[in-house]
Amino acid sequence: MMKAIMKFIYQFASPKHFYRLSGKIIPWFAWLAAILLIAGSIDGLFIAPVDYQQGDSYRIIFIHVPAAWMSMFIYMVMAISGAIALIWKIKLADVIASSSAPIGAAFTFLALVTGSIWGKPMWGAWWVWDARLTSELILLFLYLGYMALESAIEDPRAAARACAILAIVGVINIPIIHYSVEWWNTLHQGATVTKLDKPSIHISMLIPLLLMALGFKLYYGAVVLMRARNKVLVTEQNNRWVKEIIG
């Protein structure tokens, strides 16, 4: 049974099969992402009610929160696919991990920028050493380290394995870093931060948030598959099926 499953997975993960299948999936992901992002933006920017404490400026959370979710989600994807690549030697997992890194870094950067733009009217400063912003900044450093290591090692297979180890070490450390930053923050800032205590979000604001979050996920799916397809073509360029495609 296990053997049959593994055989299926290996077959599915063969570059040729992946290339064909992902070609079919990408348009679905991309179109669905576009629809969801447009619907979520319209709902979030125009239909959702004005917040009684923050006015209209809260609306940036419809970008900020999904981007922050994605930044953590993508690092998890990288660590898990790194582990899969190390354990079962599935090359495709390496491709997914390394294609994810720049996207994850971009989402992290987006979360930081939107957080700081939101912070300007809320805190009166572009940057506050808030626990979540600080953790997000450290996460960006982890992404940058990952990408720097990848580009420093010339042999792509060795680079992928080294990066997989780094991602796993990072993912174990992320909760430790996150909670120590949170602990540090409560000690140092305490009363000075006007962090609003978590209000339960109203359903009219939750719907656009979820639409945007799902849209971001599908967008990531489409882009990561596109990048992975390119990488597969480059690494398999000497195989016949690639030559047939390129012509």
Binding site: G145, A148, L149, G170, N173, I177, S180, W184
Partner: peptide, 20 residues
Amino acid sequence: MLLSLLVLPLYIPVLIFSSN
């Protein structure tokens, strides 16, 4: 240079708790 990029973020919890 690369080493510092990889290692310093992971040192942060130690720094926080020790200096605190």
